[in-house]
Design a binder for these strands. Structure first.
Lengths: 234, 234
DNA sequence: CCAAAAGTGTTTCCGATACACCCATGT
DNA sequence: ACATGGGTGTATCGGAAACACTTTTGG
């Protein structure tokens, strides 16, 4: 069969903006670039797509190779394709953002992969257009988290309401009213209370909760304002 | 400077899902494919990206070449990259969706470009993964339209509230309560009432409105449910 | 006993819904 | 005059926000 002979090919990479939560602050995982140019500068986790794999597969493969992480929550952000975004050679990048539980991988990431967590407002100058990617990813994270319960991906299996609130406050960079926050979250039907308390952060201790996964899928879509009965559509 | 020698390139295309509104129904613009294979089958507006242009520029250029349309509302949807999505050759496609005012281009499109409008529920079998793209685009359109006033892009400069309501009903495939709908839309502060009536559709006639563009930008973001004062974030 | 954090209760307000009715006008 | 669609009014309900208080327990 004939091919599209007069069309020109380009390199395609994937870059991944990896968010984590340490219990107090939202953080970003970065590595130091190991090839020229810009070797040693901080960078998102990136790599090239193989022609025989899908972008999603490529993003997952690159993520695993560079961090050991598997089966994490990932979302395609968008394509970055400014013609001069990569000074070496024309290359598109398909940006993804990922949400992981920091503690589950902390040692492995720093020891084996020399990746480092940064506070969002202490992120250094990154290579290429990675700062722009990060900015968009954070915006998208806020946007999506305001509509869907995705932030649970950043927490361990068991978590307390105050932890959850700290997470939301970190992501949205605001304070929430404690009493309204807990009631609002509990009213979603997504949380299951455990008979166990976390005594780390206070004398009284806060009850642990887990996510009710059946409700998670059912309640993933909710509350769009304009349309009556929005559940129907999504 | 050295290049990324061991990375393999791929073809990158853009495809555009073009929505229009004829006053009653939401419609989709399609063309018949003019190259082998699948010649003659219905297809979205697509074309290959040149290496020296950005994806957005490519999508706009392709759109103009195939329809004559310029300066229309366009949004990147996502990359479609299943390895076997194009049987001819490995190719990614960056999907966009566009919103246009049907009447402004009706003749031009059919006469010069042989493009045709289809009702959404009468869309034929399309080439490749274009049906899947359409499905996602429609979902995305509903999603975004529920949160932002983008549907005005589908209407002419002057429009009536009943027209606007028909549009929303078309996009969401539901009926809205007339009285609540007009009040809700008027309360956004986006509409400017004109001293002129459209007498086409009724004896009484319905007042024309235009979009207040200053408010449009200011009110583009609104009303995300979980977060207090969401305006701040977007 | 007290400080510090967790958790529950109450009031107010606004927007969403569900209704019924009046208005303008071409036939 | 009347049918047809356009437009406004109103009562009700529920969720969001603002605020105060009680509970628990380690020191």
């Amino acid at each position: 069969m004939q091919k599209y002979t007069n069309a020109k090919k380009v390199l395609v990479a994937t870059d991944c903006i990896i968010f984590g939560f340490d219990g107090w602050n939202l953080k970003l995982l970065l590595v130091q670039r190991n090839i020229e140019p810009e070797i040693g500068r901080w960078s998102l986790m990136g790599g090239f797509m193989e022609p025989d794999e899908s972008p999603d597969a490529a993003a997952n493969r690159v993520l695993e190779q560079r961090t050991g992480l598997k089966n994490v929550y990932m979302d395609q952000l968008r394509v970055f394709g400014n013609p001069d975004r990569d000074p070496v050679e024309r290359a598109l990048s398909i940006a993804y953002f990922a949400l992981i539980d920091i503690h589950q991988y902390e040692k492995q990431l720093s020891d084996e992969y020399h990746a480092e967590w940064f506070l969002l407002d202490e992120v250094p100058e990154l290579i290429f257009d990675h700062n722009e990617m990060l900015k968009l990813a954070h915006k998208q994270l806020m946007y999506k988290a305001a509509l869907h319960p995705i932030l649970f991906q950043l927490l361990p299996e068991k978590f307390t309401i105050p932890q959850l609130q700290a997470l939301y406050e970190g992501v949205f960079e605001t304070k929430f009213d404690d009493r309204n926050f807990s009631r609002k979250l509990l009213s979603t039907g997504l949380l299951v209370k455990l008979n166990e308390k976390d005594k780390q952060s206070s004398k009284k201790g806060a009850f642990y909760y887990t996510l009710d996964k059946s409700h998670y899928i059912k309640n993933f879509n909710a509350f769009l304002n304009l349309v009556p009965n929005p559940d129907k559509f999504f």
